[in-house]
Amino acid sequence: MTATREPILTVRGLEKHFPIKGGGLIKRTVGAVRAVDGLDLDLYPGEVLGLVGESGCGKSTTGRAILNLQPATGGSVKFEGRELVGLDRKAMRPLRRDIQIVFQDPYASLNPRLPVFDIVAEPLIIHGLTKDEAELRERVRTLVETVGLNPEHTNRYPAEFSGGQRQRIGIARALALEPKVLVLDEPVSALDVSIQAGVINLLEDLKERLGLSYLFIAHDLSVVRHISDRVAVMYLGKIIEVAPRDELFDRPTHPYTQALLSAIPLPDPRRERSRQRIIITGDVPSPANPPSGCRFRTRCQKFANELTDTQREKCLTVEPPLESRGPAHQSACHYAAATQVL
């Protein structure tokens, strides 16, 4: 559906390596945590791209590197054709009108000493977008109403709001500059289920009404399936599979995607108890020292149980590239095969 359009955001070979300093007086760099290690993404206008993975796979770092909040150490991020990597704060500022972020923790991302009005008005003032006080008031009021909060309450402080409401304040602040792209970094994972659903519905409505594009970063695949048009799965700093939503959930081809989908318990006793589960062993390896060849081979059920020694040789030595598995569907596995796991 999006193949013919130009992407609004193009990420190529993005790298974010954090240096590991040695002990002692002279802090020499002794290695690097390769949090994001050569990542390619395209975000199309009006699209929700879900970015999923387990903790430590680099999905939040990706979001921050795209926004230049943590400068990338390599690769390229292009927004509407303009390169963002390497821009300094000043050069980045006008672009911040177009790309905004909503953070995970609504308790930490709002200044507790500012009333809600000031929090939402701050971007408008910084970017000089209002002529006078009355206009500012009107705009903040409209924004607060847009996210489903009572505009009478903007003189209150964040502490007087619940988690779900705070996340709505964070969304209002991100919308203040009328951005084209929103990076949503785990926007609902700190919220209880009944509250989370309201915020998800709000995000869906806003996307339709404002024509936004979302990069939706999350670890909860149920939420991602619900909201995304396409889904990219990350493992140890790389995308290992990307596909349109139903294609990914119904015909995953990468063993990691299959294990991930299979691991999630379904809130349906009969289906949950009749499922065959793929259980992968071990934990995610350290991103400071990723395995040779395929990064997933140390936990891969296919590598462990199905492949012959000669086939394994390729997993050990050659890093699998993202290859096409069908329309808009790519995965990085030498022995990819679609399986139904749900």
Binding site: S194, Q196, S222, R225, H226, P267
Partner: peptide, 18 residues
């Protein structure tokens, strides 16, 4: 139960928050 997005459903059914 209505607030939960479902992993095993492809229909984009709206959630019903409380």
């Amino acid at each position: 139960l209505g607030s939960l997005p479902r992993l095993d459903s492809s229909t984009k059914q709206r959630l019903t928050p409380i």
